[in-house]
Amino acid sequence: MRALLIPGILGLLLGLTLRWTRLCSPVELRRALAFRVCHATRSLLEAVGAGMALTALLMWLAVIDVDGVVVLPLSAGALAGGAVFGVAVALAGFTPLTAFAGVSGRHGASALCTLAGCLAGTLLLPLLDGPLAALRSLPPHSATTLFRVTLDEPYLLGGGFLGQGCAGLLLMAIAACIPSNRAAAPEAPDESAPEMPPEPPALPPTEPLLCLPAPAADAPEETFVALLPGEEPLVVDTATDESPAEEAGAEDPPDAGEPPQDADPSSPTDPPDEA
C-alpha cells in the first residue's frame, strides 16, 4: 500500500499542476512551442530552470544519490530522436506525459489516440533495437554531463553543482524576462472559451455637416437644409423662436382633447413672428 501511496500522491499533484500550467492542452502547447503565447512558455522554461537548480541542490545535499544518476550520452540518435520528437509533439499537441493528463480535457479523444500510439511504438521498440542501437553508436560522441555532477562520468564544464545551479538560475531569469502576453492568452482555450466576435469594419470618416440655404422657392430665407450623409435632408428653420409655452408643452404635452397652444391666435405666449 505504501508503494502505491507515494506515486499516487505525486501523480495527482503532477496532474493538477499540468492542468494549471495548461501544458496538457494541445492548443496551448502548440502556441507555446511556436512562441505565440508566452504564458505556457514561461511556465515551461521556469520549470526546467528551477528543476535544474533544485536537482543540483538535492545532489549537493546528497539527497539524490549521484551514483544512481543515469546519464544520456550525446549521439546521433539523441539528435535525430529529438528532431522527430519535436515534430511529433508539435503536430499532436501532446507528449507521452501530457497525454495522460489530456485524457480528461476537451481533446480527450486525441489524447487517447496519442496514448495508443505511444503504446504501439513502445511495443515496436524491441523489434527495432538493432537499427536504433546502430544509430546511437554514431558520432558525435561527447562528454556525458554538462557539469561535474557524477564521480566517474566525463563532463564538459567545471563548476560542479554550483555551475548546474547557475545554469538553472539563468533559465529562470530568461523565463522571468519573457513578456507575458495576457491579452493573447485566454484563461483556458481548450475549456470551451467563447471566441471574441470579429471587430466591426471600420466606419468611413464622417463627413462634416453641410448646411445650405434652402433651394426651394417656397422656403423662407431663414430656412436651412442640413444634409447628413445617408440621411434625408433636414430642414431647419432658424427664424422661429421657441416660446416658454412651447418649451413647457414639450416637457408636459397637452391632453388629446385640449387644443394646441399655437391653435389659439389670442394667446399672448405665441406672438406671430412677422420678421
Binding site: 530522436g81 522527430v84 499532436a92 496519442t114 500510439g117 513502445t122 515496436l124
Partner: peptide
C-alpha cells in the same frame, strides 16, 4: 504521432 514519439 504517438508512435513516432515512442520511437524517438
Amino acid at each position: 504521432y504517438g508512435a513516432a514519439m515512442a520511437l524517438a
